[in-house]
């Protein structure tokens, strides 16, 4: 699935070149994001190299197989729009410790417990912003973010993607692992963009490659 080209009319070499470029852009963004996040939360932040998946909704099972791991837990989504449009899905699994990261965002220990969902919404917002800001800067495009929302408390990310009444058919899914040393657990970020915006994305990349 990861190898399937979304654009049969484009020569394979070009397609591969674009994918490599996209991967490189994301890698750079993640590096920058990790640095700024570390600065904000004053802790070591780890963001994995993004795994690129080209997904068809009918094949979400394949995504499940292709993903490094399929997390299950609190799922928060945040829409982004502008030149590109898509959603960031972040899954926080049970057992992660948000005390330290919460303190760095001026939440007391009790508030971390009491307002965990708000804290997670805020972390998602910061993460999403951090990860995509670099991409937007490199591509020289405008991106805005909507308010993050808690959409499920005990589901697998893929179950959310599989929802039969959702409107997408094909999408690009970037899978990123995120952890802060004090969190003692990895959370998973999926940056998803539906098919119709991939062309625009590639147009930017073509522009960069020229």
């Amino acid at each position: 699935m990861t190898d399937t080209s979304m654009h049969p009319e484009v020569p394979i070499e070009v397609d591969e070149l674009r994918k490599d470029a996209l991967q490189e852009i994301f890698n750079i963004s993640m590096g920058q994001a990790a640095d700024s996040l570390a600065c904000l939360v004053k802790d070591r932040v780890y963001l994995s190299v993004p795994q690129m998946h080209w997904v068809e909704k009918s094949d979400v099972q394949d995504l499940k197989a292709a993903m490094k791991r399929v997390p299950k837990g609190i799922i928060i989504c945040q829409p982004f729009s502008g030149y590109l449009k898509g959603e960031i899905l972040v899954c926080y699994e049970q057992g992660a410790d948000f005390t330290v990261i919460g303190e760095s965002l001026a939440y007391t220990k009790e508030q971390v417990q009491k307002w965990q969902h708000e804290l997670l919404l805020d972390i998602t917002n910061i993460l999403g912003g951090a990860c995509l800001r670099g991409v937007a800067d490199q591509l020289n495009i405008r991106l805005e973010f909507g308010a993050p929302n808690l959409i499920d408390r005990h589901s697998e990310v893929t179950t959310i993607l599989l929802n039969s009444s959702s409107i997408w058919d094909k999408a690009l899914v970037m899978e990123i692992g995120f952890s802060v040393q004090s969190m003692s657990m990895t959370s998973d970020i999926l940056i998803c963009m539906p098919e119709q915006y991939i062309n625009k994305l590639f147009k930017c990349i073509d522009h960069l490659l020229e």
């Binding site: 700024s36 600065c39 904000l40 760095s104 965002l105 001026a106 939440y107 307002w115 969902h117 708000e118 919404l121 805020d122 917002n125 910061i126 999403g128 912003g129 951090a130 800001r133 805005e144 973010f145 308010a147 993050p148």
Partner: peptide, 27 residues
């Protein structure tokens, strides 16, 4: 307005040039 928390939010908004949100359910 809770000062420490709000200042932190302002800091992150400036740092990431992004928008931060609060919802009536929590605040």
């Amino acid at each position: 307005l809770p000062e420490a928390w709000f200042r932190k939010r302002v800091e992150s908004v400036i740092m990431f040039h992004n928008t931060s949100f609060t919802q009536w359910q929590y605040r």
